[in-house]
């Protein structure tokens, strides 16, 4: 298991077909905030998020995004109005998260550290800059 920022809480996963093994924190945040919509090889980015009641999400927002839940909600309202971007689909469980990331070649998401990954997804190291 690779070491990553907040590794004691959540880990980031991507489709097995994704050639990358690590990604910068800013890039990953850009993918979440839909500032950047494609991977370097041109594949469409599909970020999957957990539901509000998921503990991993709290960790993700607090330690990774650096925004509160309310701030994120307001952000997506603004995005919907001004850019048309809609917040990522929220998944109910880590297994469903892994399944969705496995379905889309450009899929990216996060699961709890304890979760065992299926074959069609892999960890991606998030490098703090």
């Amino acid at each position: 298991m690779p070491r990553s920022w907040g590794a004691d809480d959540i880990v980031f996963i991507v489709n097995q077909k994704n050639p990358l093994t690590k990604i910068g924190q800013k890039e990953l945040l850009g993918y979440f905030m839909k500032k950047d919509r494609t991977w370097p090889d041109g594949t469409a980015v599909r970020f999957f998020d957990h539901r509000d009641d998921n503990k991993s999400r709290d960790v993700f927002l607090k330690k990774f995004v650096g925004k509160t839940l309310r701030e994120v909600e307001l952000y997506w309202i603004g995005e919907k109005i001004y850019t048309g971007h809609i917040a990522p689909i929220q998944i109910t469980s880590d297994s469903m998260m892994a399944r969705m990331v496995g379905r889309f070649p450009g899929g990216v998401g996060y699961v709890s550290k304890k979760f065992r990954l299926p074959k069609d997804v892999k960890y991606i190291e998030v490098v703090k800059e």
Binding site: R46, I89, I91, S95, M96, R99, M100, R103, F104
Partner: peptide, 13 residues
Amino acid sequence: IEELNADLLVASQ
């Protein structure tokens, strides 16, 4: 069930 759910999520996507 999860598979079907995933399908629906994909459709939602």
